[in-house]
């Protein structure tokens, strides 16, 4: 048994000819909050999809709880995912269900709890994100921050042991952002979870994370505790942390050819 809940070893990923990630080595210790940072389009969401087994690495391995994700059967993959909560970039709430039913979806699917208990469970989760009062609203009636919090409640309603957050702060006002940050830390510590937070915003993450990886130009250019990273003198890291546009890391990624990739 390793102490790492997630372990990526020599991981590479490409869309056809276009290499997104190259030789990534990354581990997430149990109980910690680990940040994966890097500029937009560098492949952070890709890392998340590789961890959850939605995509398969071109080479290298992904291990979650000691099991190799890419060689899992469909059934085992789904079994593993029951223990993972994912907050997608846009929340991805079900637009045809109200807030209550959205949060209830995983419960209804994976348990046979009686209705009264489902109601309690969902309301407790909504209370913990401060949205018990919004229980009857439809997703279209929510602000961006509220939708994100409902999605957070939905992702964590079955108390998974691993939470993955994809850009949880993007597009939020400062109050909304700090609310989410606090929720991430609180749920992680209260539930003895492990959390991976994917983000391009530096400041908040340096506050939240126990450990951080910085991805740039296909590979990890720096890692460490926030303190270590701040003291690091590698120009690529200094550039990223200070948000300088020009520097050793080219922030302009080659224009992608998504269209041709999908049709070709």
């Amino acid at each position: 048994m390793s102490e790492d809940l997630i372990k990526l070893t020599d991981l590479s990923f490409a869309w056809g000819e276009k290499v997104i990630l190259k030789n990534i080595n990354l581990s997430v210790p149990r109980g910690s909050v680990v940040a994966i940072m890097g500029p937009s389009g560098v492949g952070k969401t890709t890392v998340m999809r590789l961890i959850t087994g939605q995509w398969v690495p071109t080479s290298g391995t992904v291990e979650v709880a000691g099991q190799c994700v890419s060689s899992m059967s469909h059934k085992n993959l789904y079994k593993m995912r029951r223990n993972i909560g994912v907050l997608l970039q846009n929340g991805a709430l079900f637009t045809d269900l109200d807030v209550f039913e959205n949060v209830a979806v995983p419960v209804r699917e994976h348990t046979n709890l009686p209705e009264a208990l489902i109601r309690r469970l969902v309301l407790i989760k909504l209370e913990s994100v401060g949205l018990r009062g919004a229980v009857d609203l439809m997703p279209s009636e929510l602000s961006g921050g509220m939708a994100r919090r409902v999605a957070l409640a939905r992702a964590s309603v079955l108390d998974p042991s691993l939470m993955l957050y994809d850009e949880p702060l993007a597009g939020l006002d400062p109050i909304g952002a700090s609310t989410i940050l606090r929720l991430i830390r609180d749920t992680n510590d209260a539930m003895e979870m492990t959390s991976v937070v994917i983000t391009h915003s530096v400041e908040d993450m340096m506050e939240l994370a126990d450990y951080a990886y910085i991805i740039a130009s296909q590979s990890i250019v720096g890692e460490g505790t926030p303190e270590e990273l701040r003291q690091n003198t590698d120009p690529r890291i200094v550039q990223f942390l200070n948000g300088a546009i020009d520097g050793p890391v080219p922030f302009h990624y080659p224009a992608d050819d998504l269209h041709q990739d999908l049709l070709g």
Partner: peptide, 8 residues
């Protein structure tokens, strides 16, 4: 995608 990730 969210459904897949919820093991649905």
């Amino acid at each position: 995608s969210a459904m897949e990730l919820m093991a649905i």
